[in-house]
């Protein structure tokens, strides 16, 4: 968080030569990638390509063995922990929908609101009009207004996915990392999710990890294909899916 650092890159997210290994297994291998401000990027790749580990590195859950990870051109993410990174404005949706199941939909959003998160302020927190309005607005966006007082655990799988995206919205981050948002969704829900992400992308940078090619195609954004922890191909969905090596990796020839 060194503000005196000169801006090294104009990218929102900048990864260069990142390595990480678990007991000799190279999960991420010389990974380099840049995401421009305001961009939406889809990341694809077979199982074990390192997609989730990449997310872990960006959000501070895993520390890379070597390499640079810069946010907004100035902040070295490798030196921060999850909380600090979240407070910088990086939000994350997990692969498996992770909401606070024993609390109401409303409370889930309240917890996610981008406010002072220190213990004392939280203990003496007073509900305010501004908060309520913000929560109403997010509920509207994720179409859960009617379910606001229900426990998050009682929502359907698709609704949980949406609630988690809603929590990201309430968090109001600059960069959203979205891991498999449409897993387990119906076609209609998938379509709606694509629309939602496009709306979000109007003022935020988004990185989406997804297997569902129809969904990726519908997003219509630049695609990066990962394989064995490094970038295999990058371009439009048509370019990437025509790439010889991508076909080889996916079909296992």
């Amino acid at each position: 968080m060194n503000g005196l650092d000169t801006r090294k890159t104009s990218a929102m997210l900048y990864l260069d030569g990142v390595h990480v290994s678990f007991d000799g297994f190279h999960a991420i291998n010389n990974l380099s990638m840049t995401i421009a401000p305001g961009e939406m990027r889809a990341i694809i790749g077979p199982n074990g390509a390192g997609k989730t580990t990449m997310m872990d590195i960006i959000t501070g859950k895993t520390k890379p063995d070597s390499g640079d990870v810069l946010f907004d051109g100035i902040t070295d993410l490798t030196r921060l922990d999850e909380t600090q990174i979240a407070e910088l404005g990086i939000g994350r949706k997990f692969q498996k929908p992770t909401v606070f199941e024993s609390q109401t939909v409303e409370d889930n959003l309240l917890l996610a609101l981008n406010v002072d998160h220190r213990v004392r302020t939280t203990l003496f927190w007073q509900d305010s009009r501004a908060d309520a309005e913000r929560i109403d607005q997010v509920l509207e966006t994720i179409r859960l207004t009617g379910a606001r007082r229900r426990l998050a655990g009682s929502l359907s799988h698709g609704q949980k996915q949406w609630l988690e995206i809603g929590m990201l919205l309430a968090q109001d981050p600059k960069l959203l990392l979205v891991d498999e948002p449409v897993a387990g969704m119906t076609d209609v829900e998938t379509h709606q999710t694509a629309e939602l992400l496009k709306t979000i992308n109007r003022d935020k940078t988004v990185v989406v990890v997804e297997h569902d090619m129809t969904f990726v195609r519908e997003l219509g954004v630049r695609v990066t294909c990962l394989h064995e922890g490094s970038v295999l191909a990058e371009g439009t969905i048509d370019q990437v899916s025509a790439n010889e090596r991508v076909i080889e990796v996916y079909l296992g020839r």
Partner: peptide, 16 residues
Amino acid sequence: IAIRDAESRTRFLGYR
């Protein structure tokens, strides 16, 4: 309660 149910999620929301 959020910490009890999903500690890591709470962290990613920016809570220490």
